[in-house]
């Protein structure tokens, strides 16, 4: 992905068409995060609301039916924290 941004104007592919689909996966947006959502599964009712609301689509269901974010892509927007019915997701600063 990175080399695409180093092309000279003469090397731009026609129409700036990109022939590697799914390449957005290479863009690890998790680096944007200043706070991370942390789940306390003891209060979780497995409703899936966090999963539905995550704009990044980075929350997945675990084998036990709980939910968890993929921190490679979680941008730390805090929407899951806000939407969780039972307030079982905490927002924790990245430094700690």
């Amino acid at each position: 992905m990175a080399d695409k941004y180093e092309l000279s104007w003469k090397e731009i592919p026609m129409g700036f068409v990109f022939d590697k689909p799914m390449a957005s996966r290479e863009n690890l947006t998790g680096s944007w995060r200043s706070e991370r959502p942390v789940w306390d599964h003891s209060k979780c009712i497995k409703c899936g609301v966090c999963y539905m609301y995550c704009p990044e689509g980075c929350i997945h269901e675990t084998e036990e039916g709980y939910f968890q974010a993929d921190y490679d892509y979680c941008k730390g927007c805090g929407i899951c924290v806000q939407e969780c019915w039972t307030q079982c997701i905490k927002f924790v600063p990245e430094e700690s």
Binding site: K4, Y5, L7, S8, W9, K10, I12, M14, G15, F16, V17, F18, D19, K20, P21, A23
Partner: peptide, 28 residues
């Protein structure tokens, strides 16, 4: 067509042009 939507050879058209590349696409 030199570029086309084709399920056997997928491409992404009309993608984001971040500040590092938008200028080059316009001159091209």
């Amino acid at each position: 067509p030199q570029i086309r939507l084709d399920i056997h050879n997928p491409v992404a058209m009309g993608i984001v042009g971040v500040p590092e590349i938008y200028y080059e696409t316009r001159l091209a």
